[in-house]
Each structure stands twice: as C-alpha cells, then as structure tokens.
Design a protein around this nucleic acid. Structure first.
Lengths: 110, 110
DNA sequence: TATTCATATCGAATTTTATAGATTTGAGGC
DNA sequence: GCCTCAAATCTATAAAATTCGATATGAATA
C-alpha cells in the first residue's frame, strides 16, 4: 500500500486545477514564484502553499537564489507518474495481476 | 482553466492510495465491486463512494449486470492523462509555452 | 411475493484542504 | 544599520473529502 501512497501523493498534488496549470507552466522551464503568481488571482501565501504541496510530493523542485525561489519539474518524478499510467494500460507488466487478485468476474471465482 | 479542471479531476480521483490501488487492480481487467472490496478493510459504502468518484472522473467505467456492478478502466481517459504527462516532459509541444508565459527567470524579464 | 444479496444513497462525525491576512525570515540595496 | 522586496510561515475560517452505519433500491430466487 505504501507504493500507492507514494503515487497518490503525486496525483493528489496534480489534482487541483491551479496546480495542474502551474505544472504545465513549468514544462517550459524553470520559473520563479513571482512569475507564476502573475498568472493567477491568488494571494502570495496561497501560491506558496500550493508550491509547498507540489514540492513535498516530489514532482517539483525549488531552488532559492537571492530573494527569489525558482521552481522546476523533477524529471524523475514525472517519469514515475508516467510509468504508473503505462503499467495501468499494459496489464501484462502490472504490479498486481500476479497477486491472485485477478478474476474475470465474480461468477467464475466463487 | 477548464482544461486544467478536467485534468485535475482525473488526478484528484487517482490521488488517494486506495483508489490508486483499485485502478491498478483494474489494469488486470474488469472486476466486480465485491472482488475489490475483499482486498480492503473498508466498509461497502466507502468503496461505493470511491468507485463513484473514479467513475465521475471518467477514468473508470461501471457496467451493471444483474446484482453486480463490474468496473473497468476507460482507455481513452488513461490516454488523456498520459498525454498530459507527456506534454509536460517535452516542453516543445506544450500547450502553454507559446502563451508569452515563459521566461528564463525574473531577472531577464523585468 | 417475500427474502436475500450486491450496491447505491443518505446523514452525520471527523479530518483534510484551500484560502487570505498578518507576521516572519532572509537577501539586497541605500 | 535601515528599508525594501520575495517568499515562507502562522492563524483562522470556510469548504471539501473520508468514513461508516443505517436505509433504500433493485435483481435473483425460493
């Protein structure tokens, strides 16, 4: 269940429209908080909270330089999230299918 | 922002450890609620609520047959989520980069 | 048709999240 | 050293999510 907690933490971080848009903005490259804030009608403290969530999930990294904090995507975390979705589409390599968990319906298995 | 609301709704549905695990279970193929319930320590009403969320997000489809409800992944929705993550890694094709939104840092742009 | 079984829905309690204003921290500039 | 500015943190509040017991629904069946 721990592995799912890890996935869930990342997806939860992406599970807010503003954070999803922030992440998309960061796909263009590193951005400072001030630039991100410009694009939203949101208080500075609220943005800071969202960035903290994104960083704590591991999906985004923050780099402090002088007065500013620059944010960017963590390629590894993006890759892990992608691989989860990939694993979901190709049942063969699924983590869970071998686990006596699969059935084709209740009728056949009870 | 609407497009991000749509993505966020899906990611929010995946943003719970139990739901992430349920989705992984469904990667093996269709399952009925009773089979899923067996794998969790969770009341029936709670599972029903989780399945409703997953279905409302579009990520999972439910098929009622007699007394049972069978759940399976919606391939299109999985594909859309994947494409969001793909778009995030390859900045070139990003939805948002053209939007005068990119900068390489505050210093250069102010 | 009365009963049973699988799910869904309702209602309520608890926890978590989103938000903003006020304050703090820490770097730079005067 | 004092002021300014960017960002984080604290505090409070309102909204949303999680959970479960109880109840309703609806199909199969005796």
């Amino acid at each position: 269940m721990d592995r799912y907690l890890e996935y869930a933490t990342v997806f939860k971080a992406l599970g807010d429209p503003k954070r999803a848009m922030i992440v998309d903005m960061l796909s263009c490259g590193e951005l400072c908080a001030c630039k991100i804030l410009e694009k939203f009608e949101m208080s500075q403290s609220t943005l800071s909270h969202h960035m903290k969530l994104l960083c704590e999930s591991g999906f985004v990294r923050g780099r402090e330089q002088g007065k500013w904090t620059y944010y960017s995507l963590d390629a590894d975390a993006v890759g892990r999230a992608k691989r989860f979705l990939d694993g979901i589409t190709s049942a063969e390599e699924s983590r869970i299918c071998e686990d006596a968990m699969c059935c084709k319906g209740c009728d056949e298995n009870e």
